[in-house]
Design a protein around this nucleic acid. Structure first.
Length: 423
RNA sequence: GGAGGGAUACCCAAGUGGCCAAAGGGAGCAGACUGUAAAUCUGCCGGCGUAAGCCUUCGAAGGUUCAAAUCCUUCUCCCUCCA
């Protein structure tokens, strides 16, 4: 299947310079395409994963993706679609971030099917006057100012350094086109004007017609940016967000988003995904579990996905996943629970002998972040040990609360901790 | 460089000497309803404390006052207009 059609049917295509030309390009042979990522943090998150998924689709259809690390552009900062200037990153921070992100990218493209480049290797050595004369003259300030991506910033302030970003990104495209014959740049829809600038520059400098394609901005049905939670971004780094929590993020998506997310964040065939559009109510929970399993698997691997899945079953009750929902998924469909991988905290025998204040335990598990919060939580009936609601805020946890050295501490509907007695 | 305006808790935003740990909204947390969904309703939402109360917080540092988010001084940062 033509890679363009794959992207389109899965919902990755928002705008495209020339859909027919892009389709023809893919039909004619392997295409080299790139997406750029500025290393602004020490881990990628779900927002990055979105476009990485589209690159993975290209790799799977025999094309050559380039993952471009913006080691140079991160020194400048992209104002596109942002409300304010980002904090400037030091060179050292950028390099550390790149090192970690490269590891994540390598894991996603396990077979080395992607080229990883860093634009600092050509941007850092640019000479100002030469750059202005050779590149700068091709850019119309008038047109740049009219771009939607700068609209907010023109009201709230845009510094000159950021205003240069587009030139650098355009320069990247031209450089990759020269070095790798890269003929397609993809990105989020906020990148549209930057991508167009690159397409223009390639035509002027190299007399080559290259293409650009954007994906929709990832929004939830509730109208919020996908991949953001109250606690922050949904990170791919297991140190920053455990595979269990990553899995939970997907299980908890809005009903209305499930089918779309299956298209974006799994490789399950669209014929099966389309069937999910017809599901509703409780049936969607099975689809959510499969979404979570598949999404976790891509980022953390089969083993972690399976443990996260069985841990969730242990925490929330196992259920059979009907064989006819997303049949291609390798998810374990029989209810099987392994409690070990649930979030776990430990207490000592000595603590239990003395009686460990429940409040203390709530803080240790970070269910509550102050004594007051812990107390309020209990007062409001939000804490359960096993299935029994706790109504005494001064409760002392003792060995009597444990069964076979284990106790389940629950808060609300979603937080379950396995407390293990040691010694 | 000149003139003016602003900085309040996670975010937006009211407050212009005591009634202010600080209105309102959003986010978040918990309860009811449910399906680990959405919507809705209810409660909570700086820290310590069973409580009385104490401590810390309104850009930063000083000061006036019995008493300051509120008044004064200096500083930092942001915005608007003019150059």
């Amino acid at each position: 299947m033509n890679a363009f059609d794959v992207l389109q049917e899965r919902g990755f295509v928002q705008q495209c310079t020339d859909a027919d030309a892009v389709r023809a390009m893919f039909a004619a042979g392997p295409v080299t395409a790139y997406v750029g990522y500025d290393p602004t943090a020490d881990s990628l998150h779900v927002g990055h994963l979105f476009s990485l998924m589209s690159l993975m689709h290209l790799a799977r259809t025999g094309n050559k993706p380039i993952v471009l690390m913006g080691g140079g552009t991160a020194m400048v900062g992209d104002p596109s679609g942002k409300t304010e200037m980002r904090q400037m990153l030091t060179r050292e921070a950028i390099l550390t971030n790149i090192a970690r992100i490269k590891g994540q990218v390598a894991k996603l493209f396990g077979d080395g099917s992607a080229i990883v480049e860093n634009n600092d290797s050509w941007l850092l050595e640019l000479r100002y006057i030469d750059f202005l004369r050779d590149i700068g003259r091709h850019f119309s300030v008038n047109r740049m100012l009219s771009a939607e991506a700068y609209k907010i910033r023109l009201e709230r302030g845009l510094s000159f350094i950021e205003f240069n970003y587009q030139l650098l990104q355009a320069y990247d495209f031209h450089e990759l086109c020269k070095r790798y014959n890269c003929t397609l740049q993809m990105g989020g829809d906020d990148q549209w004007s930057n991508i167009l600038a690159g397409v223009d520059l390639c035509r002027r400098l190299l007399q080559k017609q290259v293409q650009g394609l954007t994906s929709p901005l990832l929004m939830t049905a509730a109208g919020e940016k996908m991949g953001k939670t109250a606690a922050g971004a949904v990170w791919l780094d297991p140190q920053k967000l455990s595979p269990y929590d990553y899995y939970q993020y997907w299980v908890n998506v809005d009903d209305r988003d499930v089918a779309r997310m299956l298209g974006f964040f799994t490789f399950l065939p669209m014929t099966e995904v389309r069937a999910v559009w017809k599901l509703d109510g409780r049936d969607l929970n099975a689809a959510k579990a499969i979404l979570a399993f598949e999404a976790t698997r891509i980022v953390h691997g089969d083993a972690e996905a399976t443990t996260a899945h069985t841990a969730a079953q242990a925490a929330f009750g196992g259920r059979e996943l009907p064989a006819n929902i997303l049949p291609s998924s390798a998810v374990p469909r029989v209810a099987s629970a392994t409690a070990e991988s649930m979030p776990t905290a430990h207490v000592t025998a000595a603590e239990l002998a003395a009686g460990l204040p429940l409040i203390e335990l709530l803080r240790r598990t970070e269910i509550a972040d102050s004594n007051g919060a812990a107390r309020r939580l209990i007062q409001q009936g939000g804490v359960r040990i096993g299935d029994a609601k706790v109504d005494d805020e001064k409760k002392l946890v003792t060995a009597a609360d444990f069964v076979d050295g284990v106790m389940l501490l629950k808060s609300g509907k979603k937080k379950v901790f396995r407390i293990v007695a040691q010694g």
